[in-house]
């Protein structure tokens, strides 16, 4: 159903060969929040690597640093110290514009609360990354239609998000995350606001995407949601605890 393989990265062959295996790499990554006098180590020196094509579930109790991890990996937040190498490129020193560019070209996001823009139609929401990529209108519209069909919302293109069910909204979000044909998709509690049945549909969609070669990184509390992933990473107090399924 979903067929979005192949890389769109623009790296040199050597770097590409290396990053072909390790798409994400953290080296002693720290994120420290200053709260008045006290410091919070949201990330307390994490070293890890994720392989291309893996499907990770990041788990852990509340406040353990899952969201912080997601924000850093998703190029939304800077590290306090340490290195973050994404697609073979050190992004820990990039400025705001370059980080935006990384998100625009290489990453896709799916959020717990869908985060669609309410005044825009389904089509416009799906087209949003293409708009910032500078695609011309006709081509974007074709792409949006194609993606809507893939997530089963072809008939809803001209609806606004408020006219959709939660499951449908999350499908739109998936379609939007796919618009720029990203290598990595981040999903922060993607089923958190959905009932079990619709949640399963979305997870099925993610599984399908992973089978087609996308790297998926998903934050979740729930064991049965995490069960869809291939690898699991347990966090505790800003540190990586148990890791499951990484050995291949």
């Amino acid at each position: 159903m979903i067929r979005e393989a192949g890389s769109n990265s623009d790296l040199s062959d050597a770097a590409k060969a290396k990053s072909d295996i390790e798409i994400i790499k953290l080296e002693d990554a720290r994120k420290i929040y200053q709260m008045g006098g006290s410091k919070v180590n949201a990330l307390g020196g994490v070293t890890l690597s994720f392989k291309r094509g893996s499907f990770w579930a990041i788990m852990g109790p509340s406040g353990s640093g899952k969201s912080t991890m997601m924000n850093v990996l998703g190029c939304l937040d800077h590290l306090s110290s340490g290195r973050y190498i994404l697609e073979g490129r050190d992004v820990s020193t990039l400025d705001d514009d370059s980080l935006s560019e990384m998100r625009l070209r290489h990453l896709g996001f799916i959020f717990q609360s869908f985060n669609l823009i309410p005044q825009l139609t389904v089509q416009r929401n799906i087209e949003l990354p293409l708009y910032y990529l500078g695609w011309e209108a006709g081509r974007s519209a074709d792409r949006a239609r194609e993606l809507a069909e893939k997530v089963g919302l072809k008939e809803r293109l001209n609806h606004r998000p408020s006219e959709l069910s939660g499951g449908q909204m999350q499908r739109v979000a998936v379609a939007r995350a796919l618009a720029n044909d990203p290598q990595i998709i981040f999903a922060d509690e993607p089923t958190g606001n959905l009932d079990t049945a619709t949640g399963k549909e979305i997870l099925g969609l993610l599984t399908e995407l992973n089978e087609q070669g996308k790297t998926i990184i998903m934050v979740t509390h729930e064991m049965d949601v995490a069960a869809y992933s291939k690898q699991r990473l347990h966090m505790l107090d800003g540190l990586v605890g148990r890791v499951e399924g990484a050995e291949e």
Partner: peptide
């Protein structure tokens, strides 16, 4: 949302 998607 726009910024997360990649708007500068």
């Amino acid at each position: 949302i726009r910024r997360a998607i990649g708007a500068k």
